[in-house]
Amino acid sequence: MTGTADPKRAAVLASIRQSLGRGEPSRDARRELDDRIRRHKPNLIPKRGRGSHAEQVERFVAMAESVAASVERLTRDTDVPAALAAYLRRHNLPMAVMLAPTDWLCDLPWDTQPMLTVNSGRAGDDDVVSLTPAFAGIAETGTLMMTSGAAHPTTLNFLPDHHVVAVRRSQIVGAYEDAWDRLRKERKNGRGFDLPRTVNMITGPSRTGDIELTIHLGAHGPRSLHILLIDDDPA
């Protein structure tokens, strides 16, 4: 458990080396592998993860809709409160939302929706609807990337029955690798970079195929995933 003194650790590593027919790797060999990690070169990125930003945005929407997420386009982020209230009414949902405690969402003009109860924090068992930001939207599979932190508790992504996500057009990237690059840049530190406790890549609402191999939505996580795509860089 504690570093190199652990005999089980030593035994597993020794067994690997014996089977590979070599001793401990040389310093040069280690450096080469470390360099490979430091370069973190992409392998093969499919063509569908490439293309102009406008194409990526369209692909993101099409792919997200193909996995039963719904997408609504807004021209300004100040439109979010009204769009959310309309969504709740449209689906006969209680007029209450738990916001991710991020300034961006909390400072939106919620007072324009007096019928809506707005709280912010982590999700509990009785929160029916959450609204969170996303770190990125990934076009190749219509995937949202969420990063945990004080401003984005992970429970908001899984406990409520309905998850609404606000994401800006400029946050849409083509491939997974593009999202990792953005994450590395944003979370740079002295050692290179660090990941938050949880990174969730979410592709559509929760589902299961465990009953006779037929896909049904809403297994343990959200039954619906609604994406508010905000036009912050009109193309």
Binding site: S148, G149, P153, R197
Partner: peptide
């Protein structure tokens, strides 16, 4: 639907995890 990366435990300021 869900691909999740877990790295260490809850960080300072995290409300869950």
């Amino acid at each position: 639907a869900y691909t999740t990366l877990s790295t260490g435990g809850r960080r300072d300021g995290d409300l869950d995890g």
